[in-house]
Design a protein around this nucleic acid. Sequence first.
DNA 1: AAGTTGTTTTTTATCGATAATAATTCAGAT
DNA 2: ATCTGAATTATTATCGATAAAAAACAACTT
Lengths: 297, 297
Amino acid sequence: MKTDTVYKQALNQTLALLAQGAYQERLPSENELRRRLGVSRTTIRKVLQELTHRSIITGAGRVRINGRGVDDSDYFPDVETTSKMQQVERQFMEWMLLGDTAPGTLINELELARQFGVATNGIREFLIHFSRFGLIEKRPNSGWLFKGFTREFALELFEIRVMFELRSARLFAQLPESSPLFKKLRALSKLHRDLLEGIETRYHDFSGLDNQFHRLVNEVSPNRFIDDFYDVISFIFHYHYQWNKKDELQRNRAAVLEHLVYIDALLSRNSDRIEEACRDHLKSAKQTLIQSIMGAE
Amino acid sequence: MKTDTVYKQALNQTLALLAQGAYQERLPSENELRRRLGVSRTTIRKVLQELTHRSIITGAGRVRINGRGVDDSDYFPDVETTSKMQQVERQFMEWMLLGDTAPGTLINELELARQFGVATNGIREFLIHFSRFGLIEKRPNSGWLFKGFTREFALELFEIRVMFELRSARLFAQLPESSPLFKKLRALSKLHRDLLEGIETRYHDFSGLDNQFHRLVNEVSPNRFIDDFYDVISFIFHYHYQWNKKDELQRNRAAVLEHLVYIDALLSRNSDRIEEACRDHLKSAKQTLIQSIMGAE
DNA sequence: AAGTTGTTTTTTATCGATAATAATTCAGAT
DNA sequence: ATCTGAATTATTATCGATAAAAAACAACTT
């Protein structure tokens, strides 16, 4: 049966809205809330019913108002708000990256299913999806082969990444001055400078900014295959850096500085400068990844 | 429950081997056959048992010999030798390419499952896998969106294809004369010339050769992401051309000629010639695809 | 008439079960 | 040393069922 994580998460979000005083007098309509939380009205109604039941809100029908205040203990714990699929994803990445799983290991659906506490179907669906990341390969009627999170993987990944990013960066140089992308770029530059000031404490905010920046560069001329490839990169980096905290501050500071040079180059619309900044940045990103892969071995 | 398509296909293949007289006197060992057909010994034994039962082979143990000749009616029909997954794939492609499915159509797992006569799970697994081809997109807790087999799709596909192929072609120019790839390339050139001679009747053999050629070019420096992308291309072309026979002879003759120019260029190891031939060929391949997409609309 | 809530229908996410296939084992034969 | 026989065990490919969530429909309010 389906888990009710969508409902629980929606309830938590609603609580957060109430707690921060978003709705003083009356709650908005069900449709309004639905749009805000990105779930169906069915779910919203379930949430409202529960909140009413708990007296967190009172009234009914069109007139629902804040009831007793929200307490920390009202929230559902985080575990209950992540779907099975997300849990499987996380556990698999742990198994792979933290478990020192050797290249060449055969993956057994049944075993993983037992280990992760889900039906084999869930594992299967995850593996099929995950196979796009180039780390596993299916053997029909047999299992899956783990090819290894290796140096070769990183090299192949970056070869493509450089091709794609240079392509977009070059197109950037040809953009008319009036393009809205430049405005976005300047906004992003500001965010980078802000981060740099508070880097000592906020250094882990970098990965979000990194993603935003590289995706912005690709907006110059959207291509679904490039976008997909960036999904691979985000995914890999998301998990990899989550568990590789070594030198994070220093690494991220350096990367922010590189981004700023790169952004300035893009704003200058000078192809040579752009190309140089792009290559420089990707070169050090590549080294960082490779070092951390090698370090882990 | 699992279908027994593996067994049936293995049996058919064994029959084919017997029919073409591969084993005059004695059949090879079970292990030998196993390797040859790429299935487990369990399956081979089941096949041998059945063949013995049907008197197509006689004897037992180490001495199994040809029995009565193989008859056409001995073979299992093709439908019974394709797994559910393959059937779903084919039916889905038909639905998409032949059914004039409009961009923006929402895909309903349950409906497809009923239509194709499989469990929803099978549809789901197929769609997850298929989403890598950039034609559909998942909406969590809701269905899938069909983005359309459109001109944009073709343009985006070819932008990447050109990047990848030029990259490989350029690396080819730097290969030492002694590289084994040149030998393979000469062999492929021969196959092209042979095909050209019998093109009037064998023109549909081109697609296999096309695939072989482009994969050979990428062998110069293997990259899993490029390989994956070529899977996308092969898949699309496989189905697309299967149902778009218009001008096939003429189109394929032209493509073979282009390949020959391209191969000669690669053999010459002259970067300029290579680049030109590569661009020319991809340009016309792109036009062909786009025309046939537009023609269908 | 547009927007809101109440109710019903449809669809997805997830589980568990089963036949076919693969993998493993071991003893005896050539 | 490799092959078959035979039996056992393990794993995958497939089906069907069910609660949660989404979507569609209907009835009501202002």
